[in-house]
Design a protein around this nucleic acid. Structure first.
Length: 199
DNA sequence: CCCTGATTCGC
DNA sequence: GCGAATCAGG
């Protein structure tokens, strides 16, 4: 894969949106996050409006001779609306990290197929019991901290501060941890012969 | 250990 | 120019 003009544009946009290099690399495909970062630097757009983790390991150079460098061409092509996207979904979302994506080119977003499991399984009482335990052990990650490997099951009320994501490690290809996957992908078959315990 | 971006340097 | 390896930090 090479850095075609299109790919560079996607890279620029996603980087401007605050996507991490690894995410960009995955979306683009055929490149690693290192490649993305390298390209970003070569393009000159390194620091964006917020770099949570990154520190110049090179010692801070003494700024003695400071030739006025105003030739920074401010690319004001995008007003950058960037409203705070409120994910107020009571139901689990698939890829919350990709919610704030403005309309873009039809890039292939390889999302999880997430087919409904036709296997006739009922939510075992164990799974439900695990949920409570799991939620206690939830890492309480914020939206930004979610990765492909963290459970994206929302816990709490998005409208309050009592809201976070499970964040426990999830199986490859699955957006949730094992416990949440169990309850997330229920077929539709419910137990029908449940007369004794169902009130 | 997971992740992040930054930098270096051989290609 | 490119990106893997490496570094440095959260």
């Amino acid at each position: 894969m090479s850095w075609t003009d299109e790919r560079v544009e996607i890279l620029k946009q996603m980087w401007a949106e605050g996507k991490s290099a690894s995410v960009i690399a995955k979306e683009l495909g055929g490149v690693t996050r290192n490649a993305v970062i390298g390209k970003v630097h070569r393009l000159g757009l390194s620091n964006r409006t917020a770099a949570p983790a990154a520190a110049p390991k090179t010692a801070p150079e003494p700024e003695a001779k400071a030739p006025p460098p105003p030739p920074r061409e401010p690319e004001a092509k995008k007003p950058e609306p960037a409203p705070a996207p409120q994910a107020a979904a009571p139901k689990p979302v698939e890829k919350p990290a990709n919610l704030p994506i403005p309309p873009r080119k039809p890039i292939i977003t390889a999302g999880q197929p997430l087919p409904p499991q036709p296997s006739a399984n009922e939510i075992s009482a164990e799974a439900l019991a695990n949920l409570a335990e799991v939620e206690k052990r939830a890492r309480k990650l914020t939206l930004m901290q979610l990765t492909e490997r963290t459970c994206k099951w929302p816990i709490g009320d998005p409208a309050t501060e009592e809201f976070w994501f499970c964040g426990l490690p999830c199986q490859p290809g699955k957006p949730y941890c094992e416990a949440h996957t169990a309850v997330a992908f229920q077929p539709m078959s419910s137990r029908r012969d449940r007369r004794s315990s169902s009130r």
